[in-house]
Amino acid sequence: MDFYKKLSNRGTVLVAPLMGLPGIQLTKTTIKENLENAEIQFQTIKKLKGKFNPDIVFPLMDLSVEAEALGLKIKKPDNESFTVEEHPIKNISDLKQLSIPDPKSTRLAVFLETVKKMSREFTDIPSVAYTIGPYSLAGLLSGTENTAMNTVMQPEFLHETLKFVTELINVYGKALIEAGAEGICILEPAGSLLSPQMFEEFSGNYIKQLKQSWKLPVFLHICGNTTNIIPKMLETACDGLSLDSAVDIINMKQNIPENILIFGNINPVATIAYGSREDVEREATALIEGMRHGKNYVLSSGCDIPADAKLDNIQAMFDIAEKYKMGE
């Protein structure tokens, strides 16, 4: 069944936090175990789904896996997110040394396998996979700072890098779809460093190509304050935007067409992870009330929820949504 058909059976107040990491509290596993073993990760997600009954389910977020597939050195602590240690691609000849691997022969296989298990087992809600965005992956290859400066100083080299990484993301995305993903959420955290014009040229245009190639619902998540680039995010033709807590989504909703899903945007750290239940209830209520007139709203966290977040605070989001569902 496709993404929208499944969602249409889920009522009007949708809840889908970007959660994966807090699930390790339920399975008593480490982050490392989950990012390296599909069965462990699947069990973590299954526990989360069982506990909270979300309307869309995501795997664990890992912004290093595509870079690792290209051969970059990754730091893998037991209980922290993996990070890329070195950014060695400084020029065209460095770039030419890289090649697109078969996703199945790299750690991308963990996520392919996890998504396969998710989509087979969870027949009631859509399974949405993650990929990194092209500009952020270019940033991991060459360093975030160099990449930002290259938008002005070496745009040709940056475009060559972007073409190459977009091809990798495209191949990986197709493999995710083959594995059963019913939607893909592109994570482009470095996108908020750019001006609207730069975003369009160095990120949006490449995301648009991915959307055209994948032919299924594609969502775009960018961390930080993206208020100024929302029009350009919409131009990617993605089917939904996941906006971080720095964006006033209630105010912005009038600029977003009704056929575009809006995910957001309770503060994942200050409110969900370390705030009180009342804080979450208050923010969730304000969002549901404020976004109510749009049918395209999904109550979510502004960004990935930390592993040690209080589970009861996550529960509070669902409880508030449930209260509204009952009232209808």
């Binding site: 930002a148 400066m149 938008t151 460093l193 750019l194 730069m198 100024n228």
Partner: peptide
């Protein structure tokens, strides 16, 4: 004021 963004700041700092 969002008149310039991170890339321009980095280049100016350089």
């Amino acid at each position: 004021n969002n008149e310039v963004y991170v890339p321009e700041v980095l280049i100016a700092a350089r």
